[in-house]
């Protein structure tokens, strides 16, 4: 089960940050139109994923 010595929580947190950053970047570039209605769930989801992965590691 624990083959790698990688801290999964950190990896997940990093990925979540990257995803959020990508969203913001896309918004900035005008590719997508990011409104609060979408940003809030995205941030919440990122936090939730990180919490769960921390709880499971």
């Amino acid at each position: 089960m624990r083959r790698g010595r990688v801290d999964r929580t950190l990896v997940v947190a990093g990925l979540a940050t990257i995803a959020l950053g990508a969203l913001l970047l896309l918004d900035r570039l005008g590719s997508i139109d990011l409104r609060f209605d979408y940003l809030a769930p995205a941030v919440l989801a990122a936090i939730g994923i990180v919490l769960i992965s921390a709880g499971l590691s």
Binding site: D37, P41, A42, I47, G48, L51, I52, S53, A54, G55
Partner: peptide, 23 residues
């Protein structure tokens, strides 16, 4: 392990999903 973290995470995920659905 670590129920509290999982529970809070579940709450966040559910909230996110529902917010999205509401939008």
């Amino acid at each position: 392990q670590d129920t509290w973290l999982v529970a809070a995470g579940m709450g966040c995920l559910t909230a996110a999903g529902l917010l999205l659905l509401r939008t």
